[in-house]
Amino acid sequence: MKIHVAPIAPNPRRVLWVMAEKEISDIEVETYNLGEGRHKQVGYLRKAGLPVLPMLELDDGTAITESLAICRYLESRWPEPNLFGTTPEETAVIEMWTRRAEMNVAIPLMVGVRHTFPPLAALEKQDPVIGAFNLETGTEGLKILDRQLGRTEWLAGDRFSIADIVAFIGLDFARLVKVRPPETHKHLIRWVEVMRARPAAATSARQPA
Rank of each mutant, 00 (worst) to 15 (best):
residue 162 I to A: 08
residue 143 K to W: 04
residue 179 V to D: 02
residue 169 I to D: 09
residue 119 P to L: 10
residue 68 L to S: 12
residue 123 L to H: 10
residue 173 F to K: 01
residue 153 E to V: 00
residue 189 I to K: 11
residue 145 L to N: 11
residue 77 R to Y: 00
residue 79 P to D: 10
residue 60 D to H: 08
residue 152 T to K: 11
residue 5 V to T: 10
residue 20 A to P: 00
residue 143 K to D: 13
residue 9 A to T: 09
residue 192 V to N: 07
residue 182 P to D: 15
residue 8 I to P: 01
residue 130 I to S: 03
residue 168 F to Q: 11
residue 182 P to L: 14
residue 186 K to T: 14
residue 127 D to N: 15
residue 164 D to G: 15
residue 167 A to H: 04
residue 4 H to G: 01
residue 184 T to W: 04
residue 159 R to L: 06
residue 153 E to P: 00
residue 13 R to K: 05
residue 64 I to D: 04
residue 181 P to W: 03
residue 178 K to C: 01
residue 139 T to F: 07
residue 29 V to Q: 05
residue 46 R to H: 06
residue 55 M to H: 03
residue 185 H to G: 02
residue 50 L to F: 13
residue 189 I to E: 08
residue 13 R to T: 06
residue 200 A to S: 15
residue 151 R to F: 01
residue 139 T to W: 01
residue 39 H to C: 08
residue 177 V to Y: 14
residue 114 R to Y: 10
residue 171 L to D: 08
residue 156 A to Q: 01
residue 42 V to P: 01
residue 157 G to T: 09
residue 22 K to I: 01
residue 73 Y to N: 03
residue 175 R to E: 15
residue 142 L to D: 05
residue 4 H to R: 04
residue 104 N to R: 14
residue 133 F to T: 14
residue 60 D to F: 02
residue 122 A to V: 13
residue 113 V to D: 11
residue 85 G to A: 05
residue 56 L to K: 04
